[in-house]
Design a binder for these strands. Sequence first.
DNA 1: TGCTCGATTGTCT
DNA 2: GACAATCGAGCAC
Length: 191
Amino acid sequence: MKILQKSFFSRDALVVAKELLGKLLVRRDEQGKLIGKIVEVEAYKGKGDQASHAYKGETQRNKVLFEGPGLAYVYFVYGNHFCLNVTTNERGVVLIRALEPIKGIRIMKRRRCVRSYENLTNGPGKLTQAMNITKEQYGTDLTKGPELFICAPQKKEKRLKIVSSKRIGIRVAVEKPWRFYIEGNKCISRK
DNA sequence: TGCTCGATTGTCT
DNA sequence: GACAATCGAGCAC
C-alpha cells in the first residue's frame, strides 16, 4: 500500500477533500489492524472561512493547524465525541465524516456495540470510536505511520461519482457546499 | 473562577 | 422529528 505523502496534503483543502474520497484510513493498535475507506468528508479553509477552527487564530486546541500539512487534528465535542481532521496547506483542514469498514470489522463492532455494518463508521463521532482514535492521536503525522496513516488502494478505483452539499452541524458559513461524499454509498452519515 | 456552547449521537415519541 | 447527555475549550470578568 502506498502511504500518501506531504505533497498530497500541502494543497488546497477543497482539492484534498475531494481526492481523499476512496482512500484508505489505516489504524494499527494493540487490538490489531483496522482499515476504512473514506466515503464522506468536509473541507474547512484556514483563510476566510468563518466555520474553521483556525479562523480566530491560534489557541491551545487548534495549534496543530499551524504546524503544517498531513497532521491529525483530533478534538473533543459535545461532551462525548471526538472528530478526526487532517491538516492541509494554509491552515485548512479536512474533516473525515464517514468510512466504509474494510478490515477489522469484528473489532469495530465490539467497540461500537452495534451489529449492523452500516452503523459502524457513518458519522464523525462513530468512526473515531470504532477506530479507537482519541486525543492521544492529536498531532500524529499521517504520512509516516504505522499507528495511523492514509494510503491509496492497491486496485485502481473506478471513477467515483462525487456529490457536494452544504456542510453539516455548523452555524456560520453554512452556505458553502464543501461537504463531499461518494454517491450511493451506504455508509455516509446523512443524505 | 465561572459560564456558555458545540463540525454528535442515541433514545424516545 | 425532538431532545437530553456530557465535558472541555474559550472567553469574560
